[in-house]
Design a protein around this nucleic acid. Structure first.
Length: 403
RNA sequence: GCGUCGGUGGUAGAGUGGUCAAUUACAACAGACUGUAAAUCUGUCGCCUCCGGGCUACGUUGGUUCAAAUCCAACCCGGCGCACCA
């Protein structure tokens, strides 16, 4: 039942791991003890999609599942309503139960690419509203009495806000406690999470110590290049697990070269030796683009399929390296003689006519002829006379059919 | 409650009567270049325009003024400090 294959355990303890508490030795001996452990990963269901950052932590869960341990995916439906102070965005809109259920449906489908929800040792999904929602005020007080304001203030986040004279609300102190309470309520042996969740996860350790249990915490590295620049929504290259193959390919190609290695380590199952080879090759000035393409294919294979990965690459190369057309170009029907600027604004391709003017000034709107030659539109009063295939900027394509 | 500081474009953050559609940075977009949708460089970056200009915007509502993001008043929202309470 419990697998103690040393190689697998080693893989779990090292790959993509940032920090292990209380110690690597402790966790290793636990994993070797033939006892089934319960380990969880908490996700706040704030949006409809999981992103690749979630996937990195889920991969660690999957490794434990594969070793025969029990894994729980915890939906922070209750905590999501409060908002994690780790996120500097102070207020999150509160989600209705329906929205949460909706998000969950998608999560399960997306997560199932990585962890198993059926079979003997199926992953379990839990909701923390189940216990947090039932606590009354004296329960909360008791929980709050387990830690001190000083402990809370240790957080970088809070220190920073104090320094900047920004507000810290009392309920924000509750967030780590709530997350800690999750560990207690589920009586887990361990928790996986991103390195940014360390503080919150340590709270669970502290609370469980009260009942004499040593909970372990494994934090995974965040996907970032060596300069520490994170991948994220603000960088615009955040991959969500339901992105199309084409879109994933494009986003991965826009990662900086420095992210290739950690991408392989964190997001794929490629063996370490191969990753080392790639690292060496890049150091030897081999063109990184081939490895980046490989990385993109590997990742797409996990979430879509190997065939789609190849298609996505072909599509991408055709479109961007060779300046051709993607396989699918959206079409709109319009009457003859209409201003192209109006057509594009009405169909949501451009924000305003002013934008159209700028683009024509800059040569950003082109007609693509059948032989793939391009012809810039420079007249902002351009009127439709015949069906044209347009390239707007470098990413947008549209076929305007004149009827 | 009192005092004090503040609320500006997608974000951060300048501006403190006209030269302000509003410095700058980031983000975004385009062009050049490139192995790349990377980096770098250049340009653009409220809406409309018959390219003259017009319109809408600096918490809200009023006011002063030829002229307000900028001054005044009230209100709303927020920070910090103090007091009250305990």
């Amino acid at each position: 039942m419990i697998d103690t294959n040393p190689e697998k355990i080693n893989e779990f303890l090292t790959r993509g791991v940032e920090l292990i508490l209380p110690s690597r030795d402790f966790v290793e001996s636990q994993l070797n003890s033939n006892k089934q452990m319960t380990v969880y990963l908490g996700i706040d269901p704030t949006g409809p999609t999981l992103h690749i950052g979630h996937a990195i932590a889920m991969k660690k869960l999957a490794q434990l599942q594969n070793l025969g341990h029990k894994i729980i995916l915890l939906m922070g439906d209750f905590t999501a309503k409060i908002g994690d102070p780790t996120d500097k965005l102070a207020t999150r809109k509160t989600l209705t139960t329906e929205e949460i259920m909706d998000n969950l449906k998608n999560y399960k489908q997306q997560a199932s690419k990585i962890i198993l929800f059926d079979g003997d040792n199926a992953a379990e999904i839990k909701f923390n509203s189940e216990w947090l929602g039932k606590m009354n005020f004296s329960d909360v007080l008791e929980l709050a009495s387990k830690t001190t304001v000083q402990r809370m203030l240790e957080r970088d986040m809070f220190q920073k806000r104090m320094g900047e004279g920004k507000p810290i609300y009392v309920h924000e102190f509750m967030y780590p406690l709530m997350q800690g309470q999750d560990s207690v309520a589920m009586d887990v042996d361990g928790e996986i999470g991103g390195n940014d969740q360390l503080f919150n996860m340590m709270m669970g350790r502290e609370l469980l110590k009260d009942s004499g249990k040593e909970k372990f915490v494994v934090t995974v590295k965040l996907l970032a290049d060596p300069t520490g620049k994170k991948m994220g929504k603000s960088e615009g290259n955040m991959i969500t697990l339901d992105d199309s193959a084409d879109s994933m390919f494009g986003k991965i190609m826009s990662w900086s070269d420095g992210m290739i290695i950690s991408g392989f380590e964190l997001c794929t199952n490629i063996p370490r030796e191969q990753i080392l080879n790639i690292e060496l090759a890049i150091q030897n000035n081999e063109n990184p683009i081939q490895f980046k393409k490989q990385l993109a294919r590997e990742i797409i294979t996990i979430y879509h399929s190997a065939d789609q990965a190849v298609d996505a690459q072909n599509n991408w190369e055709k479109t961007f390296s060779e300046g051709g057309l993607p396989d699918v170009v959206p079409e709109i029907n319009e009457e003859q003689g209409k201003l192209l600027s109006e057509v594009l604004v009405e169909n949501g391709y451009l924000e305003s006519k002013g934008e159209f003017r700028r683009l024509t000034d800059e040569g950003g709107i082109k007609i693509i002829n059948d032989d793939l030659s391009e012809e810039k539109i420079t007249d902002f009063q351009y009127k439709l006379s015949e069906t044209v295939v347009l390239k707007i900027g470098k990413k947008k394509f549209v076929k305007v059919i004149v009827i």
